[in-house]
Design a protein around this nucleic acid. Structure first.
Lengths: 208, 208
DNA sequence: CCATGCAGTTAACAACTGTTCTCTGGAGTT
DNA sequence: AACTCCAGAGAACAGTTGTTAACTGCATGG
């Protein structure tokens, strides 16, 4: 299906990716609203004006980063919330998956946590859109589960959003514990499991 | 107890407060890491160099803003979590209190939500410190509650942090709905109440 | 094989940044 | 009344920023 694109376009995508990568590194200790376009091009080793061939502005680049960070995450969401297996085991697997993802993509996770409430409106909007999508996917999966029988639409939506928020909180806690000792990470994992367990408990008694 | 301070110090505190206020306004649509000190002094109508009489840097000012935004919030936390009255009524009151605070101090709430994961380390640390304090206060209050009889220390801590996170999430949702129609705010309130209800349910069955 | 398109370069711009040093006027002290 | 102190002003600094225009060289399609 993928038409092998010419040398020309390949080179373009390569520098575009280099810009995204460099920006992500620079964003590890600053916010997008203070990221300068010259800063990014300098890091890549390319003229400042080359930036415009790929992005209208840094906030435009930010939106592309949101796509990169969250767009590929939908399969993982579906895996986490897939209704199979015993609930305790599912919780542990979910937390493990989150921990793994934070370990392999720390900069992406940091970027999302930072810019979710950050100072750049279009980027905030892009993140909200993706998270809303996550919410719908989780809600659809929850609806499949027999535990959700008799649930109102509103309550399902609430629970789905609660789960999504919980995933983000957990991810950002893992992020904080990344540099620290392994003990801290295990602590975060245990705490996250406890939280999920309590939420699941509330879920099972919702219709009492 | 408060010694009436001289004209000199009074004037100093006045411009200091003016700097904080101006910064808070400017931070409504940008992050602290992109806030310039000249920008702030210009907004106040004072020479750039005057800034140094009050703050070492903008991140120093940010830490002061954290104090201003969260320092005065401890009484409210204690009120919310005080163990009196029926639980459903307590939840409603808590959500109302949060909604009210977001309405009266939107800029402060936005600042905290933004800089909690923002690009300025000292500010992040200051926020984490305050939130950890909130956590301890909530935990202490929960321990008083008869529902918490027989709970382990770890579980109490987990629940306290869950509550604190939930308050922040709720506040930021109210913030997003602030400009919109009243309908949206009522929706947020109802959703927040539902979340709290589910968590409380999980809490009541924790020791089953 | 030649003409076109376009990714990336070079140079220049006005505007802005944080920080330094020196100065001043008036409040606080004796 | 004379003296000290210090919040704020003013000017200057070397760097930085985003954006513009006109360019160059090479992959591409006819």
């Amino acid at each position: 299906m993928s038409h092998t694109l010419g040398i020309r376009q390949a080179q373009k995508q390569k520098t575009r990716q280099a810009l995204l990568d460099a920006a992500l590194v620079l964003l590890e200790d600053q916010s997008l609203s203070s990221l300068g376009l010259r800063e990014v091009t300098r890091a890549v080793g390319v003229a400042p004006t080359a930036f415009y061939r790929h992005f209208r502005s840094t906030s435009d680049l930010g939106v592309a980063l949101v796509e990169e960070a969250l767009g590929s995450l939908h399969p993982m969401i579906r895996t986490i919330v897939a209704p199979d297996g015993e609930s305790e085991r599912r919780i542990e697997r979910a937390v493990e998956l989150i921990a793994g993802h934070v370990e392999t993509h720390p900069a992406h996770v940091r970027f999302i946590a930072r810019e979710r409430h950050g100072g750049v409106q279009p980027v905030r909007a892009a993140i909200q859109d993706q998270l809303a999508l996550f919410g719908e996917e989780v809600k659809a999966a929850l609806a499949q589960d027999p535990v959700s029988e008799g649930w109102q639409e509103d309550d399902l939506r609430m629970l789905a959003h609660l789960y999504v928020d919980q995933m983000l909180v957990t991810a950002s806690l893992f992020l904080e514990a990344l540099e620290g000792p392994e003990d801290a990470r295990r602590q975060v994992a245990e705490d996250a499991i406890r939280r999920m367990r309590l939420i699941t408990l509330g879920r099972q008694h919702w219709l009492d």
